[in-house]
Design a protein around this nucleic acid. Structure first.
Length: 495
DNA sequence: GCAGCAGGCACATGGCAACA
DNA sequence: TGTTGCCATGTGCCTGCTGC
């Protein structure tokens, strides 16, 4: 593994490539079917060593394949078997970067033979000239067969479906492709592998901008030549996400964006939710011209004491002074209004509106409203209605718990706290955290020793990740079973 | 307030092209 | 002809924006 990482960071001129090719009798790799195998080691553009032998397959070579390769049955009758050839071949390839045209095809046969004779398959990650050609010569040739490509680059060796001829043709193709990639700034093996994911040579130049990005969650920032922000986005995997802009993005604005792109900055965050928060702040602060979402977006809060709605700007002072009396944030005024209506529907026996608070006593009172209803229904033998009421109670209590959990992490103070503490991760329920890969619930979990409550936090987290507003979207059936189970937990705790 | 559309992101899938 | 893997495209789920 370490060896491979070193390869990726080694300059192309210093690598030893092993260009290989196999011919078969047309049978699958599941039985001995290789008829010829050839390889050459190439370093600094020079052939250093070569390996070539015929091999005896299990079955006869059919006429169709004889016509294709020119290898006839009498030529392989005395040839060595795979248990003699494959160990020598594996030793020849050791310490090099395997290369071939559609190389995975060849390696399938070689590795199947390795397994049959009790050897480990070849593990080095190969380089495929077919894939590279598709990227670097797109639009220049009508197909990517080895013969077509050899002709296109005016190679001295022409492929003939004999292993060594094809290997030598592939060597020339490899050198031509490396030269072409070098014009785009590729200097290392890692760069060649990156190019295999691109869709045009022009874009290839700019993918080198993503070189330094890590495979971690965070926020990326596209900048133009004058370092003006073009676009801010978040990603669960920064490197993969940014590279996807060069290979698979279909949005109309993307070509224009990439044309103006000159630099990529990024910031790693421990969790996706923190990335979302940072993304939002950057968009609001920098107003990148290609960001439409979140631009001028106002968040809304509910003032539970006055039963009114507050925009973020007005809620700021309240958040610092009386955070327990604010519920939110909500992504739109409409969502906040819906939530407020839901809250106002909760009235106790005296007709007083029950305001959502962190005080567990409120839950107790809500539960008793439903409990009393259920008892009276049961007394009147309306068991089905009672069951519906019971389920309503569970759902409602879960709604409220999720809302409170949402508030725990989504207000700005909590997010700032998470950012400041992100380097001091608390390990609670280690397995769960690893699976979820999210530290946003650490501070909440840290105050609870209850495993199931901690699980409910993870469910709430999923609700938030899906962008569901807890008070307005919990009719979502996909969450029903989880909510049902967790609602039972809350009801049990309250009773 | 609502409907329709577009944006954003992650993931799934079917067709194509290469090999022998 | 059969197999395989890549990649363009589609899908799902949510969001915000705009016009009525």
């Amino acid at each position: 593994m370490q060896l491979e990482l070193d390869y990726e960071l080694t300059q192309l001129s210093q690598l030893t490539f092993c260009v290989l090719d196999v011919e078969t009798n047309g049978s699958g790799p599941e039985e001995p079917s290789i008829t010829e195998i050839a390889a050459v080691k190439v370093r600094y553009g020079h052939l250093e060593d070569r390996f070539h032998t015929l091999m005896r397959p299990k079955n006869a070579i059919p006429p169709r394949i004889v016509a294709l390769t020119g290898i006839q049955n009498h030529m392989v009758e005395e040839a060595p078997l795979e248990n003699e050839v494959i160990p020598q071949f594996a030793e020849f390839v050791r310490g090099t970067v395997p290369v071939g045209h559609n190389v995975k095809f060849d390696l399938r046969y070689i590795n199947a033979a390795c397994v049959r004779i009790g050897m480990e398959p070849l593990t080095a990650t190969p380089l495929d000239t077919l894939t590279l050609s598709r990227r670097l010569l797109l639009g220049e040739v009508h197909d990517f067969r080895l013969g077509t490509l050899s002709q296109y680059i005016s190679a001295r060796y022409r492929p003939s479906h004999r292993a060594m001829d094809d290997v030598l043709a592939t060597v020339e193709l490899l050198h031509a492709l490396i030269e072409r990639a070098g014009q785009l700034g590729a200097t290392h093996l890692e760069d060649l592998r990156t190019i295999t994911t691109l869709n045009s040579g022009q874009l290839a130049k700019k993918t080198t901008l993503s070189k330094t990005l890590p495979h971690k969650s965070g926020v990326y920032l596209f900048l133009d030549q004058e370092s003006k922000p073009l676009y801010v986005g978040k990603a669960t995997d920064l490197k993969t996400r940014v590279r996807s802009y060069f290979s698979s993005e279909q949005r109309r604005k993307i070509p224009v964006l990439l044309h103006q792109l000159s630099r990529i900055d990024y910031s790693v965050t421990p969790t996706l939710i923190e990335a979302e928060a940072l993304e939002r702040r950057l968009i609001q602060g920098l107003a990148p011209r290609f960001n439409h979402q979140h631009k001028n977006q106002e968040l809304w809060w509910i003032d539970t004491r006055h039963r009114s709605l507050l925009p973020s700007s007005a809620a700021k002072d309240h958040l610092l002074a009386r955070p327990n009396h604010l519920l939110g944030p909500f992504l739109s005024k409409f969502s906040a209004h819906s939530a407020l209506r839901a809250i106002e529907s909760l009235k106790d026996s005296a007709g007083e509106v029950l305001l959502v608070d962190r005080d567990p006593e409120v839950y107790q009172r809500i539960y008793h409203i439903f409990h009393n209803k259920m008892v009276s229904m049961s007394n009147e033998k309306e068991f089905e209605k009672a069951a519906v009421t019971r389920d309503d109670a569970k759902r409602l209590l879960m709604k409220l718990s999720v809302t409170l959990l949402a508030r725990e992490i989504r207000d700005r103070e909590a997010l700032q706290l998470l950012e400041s503490q992100s380097h001091q991760r608390v390990t609670i329920q280690e397995g769960l955290l690893d699976i979820q890969g999210d530290s946003c619930w650490y501070q909440w979990a840290n105050r609870s020793t209850d495993t199931e409550l901690f699980e409910s936090a993870l469910v709430a987290n999923r609700v938030l990740r899906g962008g569901l507003n807890p008070l307005t979207h919990l009719s979502d059936l996909s969450l029903a079973s989880e909510i049902h189970r967790l609602g039972e937990l809350f009801v049990a705790r309250l009773s």
